[in-house]
Structure formats: C-alpha cells, structure tokens
Design a binder for these strands. Structure first.
Length: 952
DNA sequence: CCATTAATGTGTC
DNA sequence: CGACACATT
C-alpha cells in the first residue's frame, strides 16, 4: 500500500519529532509530583486496573509496557503511579492530550513546514531555514554549541569520543552541502526542541535526515529527549541490517509478507531485488516504493498541515459489555455524537472549518456464532453530516440501522423493545462503535459564527474557550470603523471577518467553500441547547415520511441530497460547474436518484427549501440549514428556473446593517461585482441571498437608495420597480432595505415575515393577518438562488437572485436586502446609481470606505472609487430623499390601507399607487426604472411585491 | 465469543 | 465514490 513519490529535486532537510511518552508527560505536567516517578497512563481503571496506553521511562525500566493492564504493571513496578485518562460522555476523553499536542505543534510550525502526523508527532521540512542558516551563520562559524546540539547522535560517527566528533562533524566547513544542511537542521531542531521544553515542559526526540522515512526512523533511535541525524553517507550502512519492520509501513502485513514469503528480513535483503521484480511481487506502486526505500529514498513531502483531517470518537464494548439492543447502541451513539459535535464546534470556532461527512462504524458479531465464522464485517455507512448533537446522534442511529440490516438481513426487526435488554430476541452484539466527521472544509471566517455575526450579543452558544482565541483572528478594517460609528456593543464581531472576496473565476474549491458556507452557515455553534427544535431534514427522511425521526423502520434505500444543488442536467450552470457539482454531490450527498425524465414538478423543491429555512427555528442561537436536501429527491426535477446557485457569499457585517450606513457603497458596488460573476465581500452588504422563496425573475424586484431616517443616516434602499427583461444583456439590480422595526419589515417584505408556503405566496394573496404574523426573531439562513436560463450563460451574465436574510439587530431593527442579477438589457435607471457593467473587473469591495458613516447623500461615493470602480460614475443619489419618502409613503399606505398595497412598497412605483399612497410624509416623485411603472394591485401578494412586469 | 483504546491517515477497488 | 483494508501511535 505504500506508494512511491517522486523525489523532490533538491536536497531537503526533514525532521521528525516525537514527544516522549506523551500522555505521561502531559499528566506529569498536570501533576508535578509525579515527575521523576514511575508513571503510566491508563484508561478505565476497573477492569484489571485499566488499559495502559502510555508508560513513562522510569516505569519502562521496570518492564512496564503498553498493552499491559494496570494490575500487571503494579506487579512489575509496585510503586507505579497509574493516572487515568479523563472520562467524558462515558468514554475516554483525549482532549487534554490533543490540546497539549497543539501547543507543541504551534512551536514547531514557527520554523518551516509542519505536518502534524499524529497526536504526538510532527514532521518538519526545515530546508529553507537550513539554507538560510548555512548562508548567514553556518555551523562552522559558530563558536559555541548547546549541549542539546552536542548530544546529537550522528549515524555513522565513531561512538568513542562522541561529543568531540559531533562538534567536529557539525562544523566541518569542507563537508558536502547536504551534510552541512543537515548540520544546520540539527541546530535548528535542537533550538526548537529547547523552545518546546521551555514553553511546554515537554521533552521530545527528533530525527533529522533528508526525507521523512529516514527522519522517522532516526527519531526513534535515541529516546528520550535526544536527536539523531542521518547523513546520506550513513544510509546504506544503516539500512543494510535494519529489520524491515522498523520502516514505516512495513510494520504490518507487508513487512511480514516480505519475510514469510521471500525471506526478506532486513532492508539490505531487499537490495538484490530489481524494481520490476518487486513490482511483480507487490504491485507497481508498492514495488517501486520498496525498491526506493531500500535505497534510502523517499519522496513523501511534508504536508503543511497542523490540523486533523477528520474528527472521530469511538468506544469499544468488549466481551460482556457488548451492546445488544438498539437502545443502548442509541445511547452510546449519542454520547459519541455529543463529543464529536463538541469537537466540531471547537474546530469551527477556532479554525473555521466544518465537516461534510458523517461516518458510523461498528464492530458487531452475531451472538452464538464464532467470530471467525462471521462472513462479512459489519459495514460502515456514511451520510452528509448535519450539525447539532441530536442530529448527529439520530443520523448515526439511522446509519447504524442500515448497517445492521445489511449485516443481518434475516433478523431485521429484532431490535428489542425498550426495556427488554438481552432478551432472546438479541442475535447481534456490538463490541465497538465509532462516529467520525470528515471532509473538512473551510468556511469563510465569520460564516461559522453567524450567530454572533448577526448580532446576538456575546453569546451563549459560544464556548468559553473561544474567547481566548478571538484575538488571534485576523482583524478587519471594518470592525474599527463601523463599530465605532455604530456605537454598538459588539466590538468583537468585526474581527470575525477577514477580508474575503470571491468570484466565479476562482477555483472550484474556493467557490465551493463559499457556497458551502452560504448554504450551510448554520448550526455553526453546533450543540445548541434547543438543538432539536429546528428541523433540519435528515438524510433519512423522505417526503413520504417527513419527520419520522425515531421510527424504527430501516432507513430508506437512497436518501437524496443533491437535486437542488445540481440543477438541471445540461444547464449552463451544471455544465460549467461540473466539478463543483460533482464535488458537492460527492462530498455532501448521496447520489441523486433523479436521473432521466424531467417532469415539471418543482413545487416540492420550493417547499423543501422552505423546510430548510424554518423561520420559527431561527432564533439567535440556531440556524436551520443543512447540506442534506433529502426531500428534494422527491422532486422529479429541479425547479425550472430557480436553483441554488454558485453564488458566493459572505455575511453582512452586522454593523453595516445595524447602523444602516455601512452597506451603502459596497452594496452598490457589489452589484458590479455580480456583473463580473458574482463576488461578495465581507464588507459589503450584499451577501448572499437567502430566500426560501422562489423569486422568479418574471417578477419585478425593486431597488432603492440610501436615505436618512430619524435614526440617523442609514442605508435604505426602498424598493422600486425594476423591469426584468428576459433578453440578453446582463444587468444587475439590487439593493437592501433597512427597516427601523420589525413592523416596517413586515409591511415591506411580507415574504420574509411570513412562513407560509412560498408557492402559496406566489400565487395567493397574502392575508393581512398572516402578513403581519412575523417571525423575525433571528437571522435567516443564507441561501442563494440562481436562475437557469435556457441558453448557457457565462458566469458574468448569469442571472441570479440574491437576497439577504433579514437580521435582528440588538436594537430590534431588522434589515433585509435583495439583490438581483438580471439578464442583459434589463435597463436600469441610472438614477439608481447602478450600471450594468459586466466588463468591469471585480470591484474590490473589501475595504470600508472612510465615508461610509459620514455620507449617505450626494457625496456618498466621494471616497469610494476604489479599485475596479474608478471609471464608474455614481449618479442618482441626489434623489435618495425622494426614494425614501416614496418608500415611507408606500409603507404607510400599506399599513393604513392594507387592502390596496400592503406589503408592497416597491409597488409604489405604480403611478396610481404612488398617488394613492401619497400622504403627508413629504414629497414623492415619480420614480421610474426602465421607464416603466408597476401596476397597482388589490391584494398584497408576493407577486405584488415583485410586481409582474408588463409582458414585452 | 472477542479485554489494545481511541484515535488518525492512505490507498485500493 | 463509498466502503474497506491496512498502517501507525
């Protein structure tokens, strides 16, 4: 299974560093009185004294080893100190060791490429540092070597008069460059190891060589607290008699096969074999690898990765402890899930990563049958992960059931009834369970903490731990500015948002992380107290049985997660973004079943989208969103016009909306970004849209501009009519709304304040009572919708709709933004200050304009001509007052005369309504977009809100 | 029935 | 591409 890698061309300096009996050191640091005493770390005391998993050197000298039980160790070493691994969730909890390892990694990663190879090992590629050192302060120029360095073991050196030899060897100015580089490496590593001792009290052993294999080999040669160097000249001699099992990857089956099948005991024994011979014996890859390793060659590179690629929790239930019914399995899966979720939470907070995949595995046997008789091993199962410990747990149970029914199909229903444990019906016994989360991806900073982002005051769901690390996050330019100006009490928040911009021209994976983040920003802080309340469709649910979480029936054969994401086969988007799609498909979801015939039924999609965005569940702690659109599978076809798009997203900086002013410029600028293919910056208001609604582009949308309100300067973009054109040039329209109160939002944006079926909203008049039934207690999930046009559209002209989730600010005002990318030639009134500018480079909207807070009027953009916008003239802002007045009148009109145009400020664009609605609030002027006026309606409907454009 | 636990990562099919 | 085998600590 090992695979040969091409040897990097230049000489590398690679180190492998290993923490000596790591768990013991950690425990000795916690309990200093144990230092110097024979110590071992055990887990689960009761059974024969617990299993020893680490042994200190004092105890090793007494013959204590791992694999012993605590009792055995006591016999060998009566005064041994047995320290127990902490227990959490009823199982061993290795957190403290993980964290201690992190401390060490932090130090090692200061000096080059650092790969965290396990909880207590790192590989380092310090080639660069070594080269630099050789150039500026070569070993031969040093007048003094630390004892640590002088203690270096150099393979091939005479053992007598060791230290002298070492000093001499290291400082040979005539040595080969590779030796001198290694010497530099030895100096560097000794310094790092010294730093580790100083900062963490942990001792380490290290190997320094030209590749990972040799470094790893060397690090184990002299322990503890020593380092070993392997000059290339020593390699041959070193390997000649080295038992094959000492080499990484040869400690198992392969190594045994070498010996038992071919009599190869040492690496030297491999030398006579030609590469092709070895290939014929073990396959091309392994054969080549063997051939090269036997010659000391190993091209494996040090991956710059200090974070794990996955998180997992497992527990064994040996012998009599085996689990024999679903209840106990469910219990333990919950415990494991809880721990897993905690670790995912932490990863999210500290590293802005989330997992995509949940895997459950169990060790299981049929009772009464010998293990070796067991034909098949218990299968693993996986699904898209839904964050939240309850969800993880319930999905884990579903996966387990699936595996179980596969494992013993004959006895599918024998899950004993509650209470009936170990009854005669039990035929299976689970001796091990594991749940793991993998396929980690980065979420844009801030997405994961959407809760905080949207203004929940320093909260609740954040773990205490995180506070300490907040300061390490990149600081944001906006934080200073807007926080000050806004005078809000969330100074921290800005720091959560490093600069982020993305456009469709970015590599797929980058887009994907944004996309993921925009679709699944939720559950960020994972284990929420009211976890269960928000319904996120489980991968196991179907339309048929929507919420049967706990039903005992086996999981449906094929959960489908991808229909919405994928779009129609052959659509522009699916073609262009095939990679993305398959990536999403694979990483998020089980394969779709929706191949073939495309009927027209798309209503389910809308409903399902809504399901994912249950507003009632959107309190400030919880988000409902899920990577798993399980129910969508029921939709024979994705919606004809709207689908989740590859629009990237970021978050609305809370303050932008909180004080209303921040977003203006960037909001508008973002439109130009959209024209360039959609990009969103962290500073700009435009974030992803997220509407559960099927905003059809056949509807009109509105846009407005900023205004001043009684609350001070605010970004307000009252909705106005926008002509949507179905023709070809692309234009972009967008805007945002800032509503001082929820009530206003209700009036203006019933859609977002109502929970009724979008479908219904689209077709049916919205009852007044319902319109006002707002659920605006929390943020809305972010979603992106995109129109799929008939002809392929390049990204820059892709039609999309973007809306911002409403937000609940600390002061209870709410905001929402809508942003649309219209097909070309949707003329946009220049008075909006928006111009179709598909050719402009993506505007850099990363930085906050200094005048964000000072101006919302005519000079709005005086300082805002940033990169990419230089040539753009901003016009039309002199009319903001009019727009605002218009909006106000419209809202008021709506409020006071509900039957006419309630909830449709944008509809104010109609002349009639404008006039009708006009009341004291000040002057209103005609406002046109594209030279058209919208029509007055009787009832407030979504269609009213987004007035249908006159057919062309 | 099974007492090396609880993780990790990689390559293959 | 999901599941598994294998390897390591």
């Amino acid at each position: 299974m090992p695979v040969a890698r091409p040897e990097p061309p230049d000489t590398r300096v690679i180190a492998h560093v290993d923490l000596d009996c790591f768990y013991v050191q950690v425990e000795q640091r916690r309990h200093p009185e144990l230092k110097g005493k024979p110590t071992a770390v055990v887990q689960y005391k009761p059974f024969r004294g617990g299993a020893i998993i680490a042994v200190g050197y004092e105890a090793r000298h007494a013959g204590v080893t791992r694999i012993m039980r605590g009792d055995d160790a006591r016999k060998l070493c009566p005064d041994i100190n047995l320290v127990q691994v902490p227990v959490a969730h009823g199982k061993a909890d290795l957190t403290i060791y993980r964290d201690a390892g992190t401390e060490v990694v932090e130090i090692f990663s200061r000096m080059g490429i650092c790969e965290r190879a396990s909880i207590d090992e790192v590989y380092l590629d310090i080639t660069e540092a070594a080269v630099v050192r050789l150039m500026h302060s070569p070993p031969y120029a040093a007048d003094h070597y630390s004892a640590e360095v002088l203690g270096t073991h150099i393979i091939g050196l005479d053992k007598d008069s060791h230290s002298n030899n070492v000093k001499e060897w290291l400082s040979r100015s005539f040595a080969s460059r590779s030796d001198q580089l290694l010497a530099c490496g030895a100096l560097i590593i000794s310094e790092l190891r010294t730093a580790v001792v100083k900062e963490t009290q942990f001792t380490t052993s290290a190997g320094i060589a030209h590749n990972k294999m040799l470094a790893k080999l060397a690090s184990g040669m002299h322990k503890p607290a020593q380092q070993t160097l392997v000059p290339s000249s020593a390699v041959q001699g070193l390997l000649a008699t080295l038992p094959t099992r000492k080499i990484k990857y040869l400690g198992g089956k392969l190594g045994r096969s070498l010996e038992s099948d071919h009599g190869i005991k040492t690496m030297g024994d491999l030398l006579p074999y030609t590469e092709s011979k070895l290939q014929s014996m073990y396959g091309v890859n392994t054969g080549t690898w063997l051939w090269r390793v036997a010659r000391g060659m190993n091209g494996e590179e040090v991956e710059g990765r200090t974070l794990p690629k996955s998180h997992g929790c497992s527990k064994t239930f040996p012998g009599p402890e085996s689990l024999k019914n679903l209840d106990t399995v469910g219990h333990w899966l919950s415990e494991l899930s809880a721990e897993l979720q905690e670790r995912l939470d932490e990863d999210l907070q500290l590293h802005h990563r989330k997992a995509r995949l949940l895997v459950v595995h169990a060790a299981c046997h049929i009772v009464g049958r010998a293990s070796n008789t067991n034909s098949k091993p218990f299968p693993s199962k996986s699904c898209a992960i839904r964050y939240g410990k309850e969800r993880v747990a319930s999905d884990a149970v579903q996966l387990f059931k699936r595996s179980l029914s596969e494992f013993c199909p004959d006895v599918p229903k024998l899950s004993p009834v509650k209470g009936e444990s170990g009854g005669s019906s039990c035929v299976w016994a689970v001796t091990g369970l594991s749940v793991s989360a993998s396929n980690m991806y980065e979420v844009p900073a801030g997405m994961g903490t959407i809760t905080r982002f949207f203004g929940s005051p320093a909260t609740s769901s954040s773990k205490e731990k995180a506070t300490g690390t907040t300061s390490t996050l990149p600081s944001s330019p906006v934080s200073d500015v807007s926080d000050q100006a806004a005078g809000t009490r969330h100074e921290r928040v800005g720091a959560e948002f490093p600069e982020e911009v993305i456009s469709l021209n970015e590599p797929d994976d980058k887009i994907l992380s944004f996309l993921d983040a925009s679709m699944f920003p939720c559950n960020s802080l994972g284990s929420l107290e009211n976890d269960e309340e928000a319904h996120v469709p489980s991968p196991f649910e179907t339309d048929a049985e929507p919420k049967s979480h706990n039903n005992e029936s086996e999981a449906p054969a094929s959960p489908n997660a991808y229909a919405v994401l994928s779009g129609r086969e052959g659509s522009a988007w699916t073609q262009e973004r095939e990679v993305s799609r398959s990536h999403l498909q694979s990483s998020l979801c089980p394969p779709s079943t929706h191949a073939g015939s495309h009927s027209r039924s798309c209503k389910p999609v809308k409903r399902n989208l809504m399901d994912h965005i249950d507003p009632s569940a959107c309190n400030d702690k919880d988000w409902v969103c899920t990577p798993t659109f399980g129910e969508v599978s029921k939709c024979a076809q994705p919606p004809p016009t709207i689908e989740l798009s590859d629009i990237s997203s970021d978050c609305y900086p809370k303050d932008a909306l909180a004080d209303g002013s921040t977003g203006t410029n960037s909001a508008l600028e973002a439109k130009s970004d959209l024209a360039d293919g959609i990009s969103v910056s962290r500073n700009n208001v435009q974030v992803i849209l997220c509407s559960p609604l099927d905003f059809r582009l056949q509807e009109n949308l509105s846009v407005g501009s900023d205004v001043e309100t009684e609350r001070g300067p605010q970004l307000n973009l009252p909705m106005t009519d926008i002509q949507q054109s179905s023709s070809s040039t692309s234009n972009i329209v967008g805007g945002s709304l800032h509503m001082p109160s929820t009530e206003d939002l209700k009036l203006v944006h019933p859609v977002l304040t109502d929970q009724v079926e979008p479908t219904e909203l689209l077709s049916e008049p919205v009852e007044e009572s319902r319109t006002c039934q707002a659920t605006l207690e929390g943020p809305w999930p972010l979603f992106a919708l995109k129109q799929n046009s008939e002809q392929p559209l390049p990204p820059r002209s892709a039609s999309s709709i973007v809306t911002l989730p409403h937000q609940t600010n600390p002061d209870h005002s709410t905001s929402s933004a809508v942003q649309i990318v219209l097909p070309d030639q949707a003329n946009l009134s220049p008075t909006l200050g928006l111009e179709a500018n598909a050719n402009s480079p993506a505007a850099n909207v990363n930085s906050v304009s200094p005048n964000f807070h000072s101006s919302n009027r005519g000079e709005l953009h005086s300082g805002a001509n940033r990169q990419g916008l230089g040539s753009r003239r901003r016009t039309g802002f002199s009319r903001v007052d009019e727009l605002w007045e218009k909006w106000k009148v419209a809202s008021q009109s709506s409020a006071t005369t509900p039957e006419t145009e309630a909830g449709c400020p944008s509809v104010g664009g109609t002349r009639e309504q404008n006039e009708t609605g006009q009341r004291g609030e000040g002057m209103r002027r005609d406002f046109q977009v594209d030279g058209r006026r919208s029509r007055k309606r009787k009832k407030s409907t979504i269609s009213d809100f987004f007035v249908k454009s006159p057919s062309k």
